[in-house]
Design a protein around this nucleic acid. Structure first.
Lengths: 107, 107
DNA sequence: TTCTATTATCGTAATATTGCAATATATAAA
DNA sequence: TTTATATATTGCAATATTACGATAATAGAA
């Protein structure tokens, strides 16, 4: 089917999964690293650094925007993509919460 | 194409993406939560708690095993799935490293 | 051995994702 | 206005993912 049965899971489970799914792609990891390294935040520079077609990068940026992790600011004919710091922190908390709940006495 | 161009990314980028991709599914999040809650680690109990077919759960468990995040221990005719604590910590460090590198003065 | 319960694997259908070329849109420069 | 540059969108093609039923494999129970 290719379709995930989101109905049977909680909102929290679905939200976390959606975020991790967006992050689970090397191109999007690379884009975030570039933005974080402050090498570039200009869309076109990202396209040149990562060896993918402009339309492909644009699509990946759209997915990162879909979870509010980045924001695009138009400056002239260019667009500068920046990390949404609040969301970035929020995700970190979500992940830490998830990973902290570890049970050490299994089997 | 549906295929990711892993060749153009670093091993670290691909590794992180692979881990996040495996985690980026609500069924697998739910499975990990169940195991961590110590409600059950027995495969069949997981199947009953989450409303998916047994073959589907088995497949998800296989993917979680593929990144060494869980391990299955046979006990009689059952299998107990447990978190691999070392891997769990390793992933947490990876994620924290990734998220810590945030640039606050963008644009 | 035969039966039953548990888990894994296979085959398949439906849908999603990745990536690109082509094209549209928008802004600045000439 | 015309041209060039930057980004977004659309329309594919190839591949991946999700899910299920059927079936295999395994181990304990009868």
């Amino acid at each position: 089917m290719g379709i995930t049965k989101t109905q049977i899971f909680t909102a929290e489970q679905n939200e976390l999964a959606t975020i991790l799914k967006v992050l689970g792609n090397p191109a999007r990891i690379a884009i975030l690293q570039h933005i974080n390294n402050q090498k570039d935040c200009i869309c076109n520079d990202i396209v040149e650094e990562i060896g993918l077609a402009q339309s492909t990068i644009s699509q990946h940026l759209k997915e990162l925007k879909s979870i509010s992790l980045i924001e695009g600011e138009i400056s002239g004919k260019r667009v500068c993509y920046c990390i949404n710091q609040n969301k970035w922190q929020e995700i970190l908390v979500l992940l830490n919460d998830f990973f902290d709940k570890t049970n050490l006495n299994c089997c």
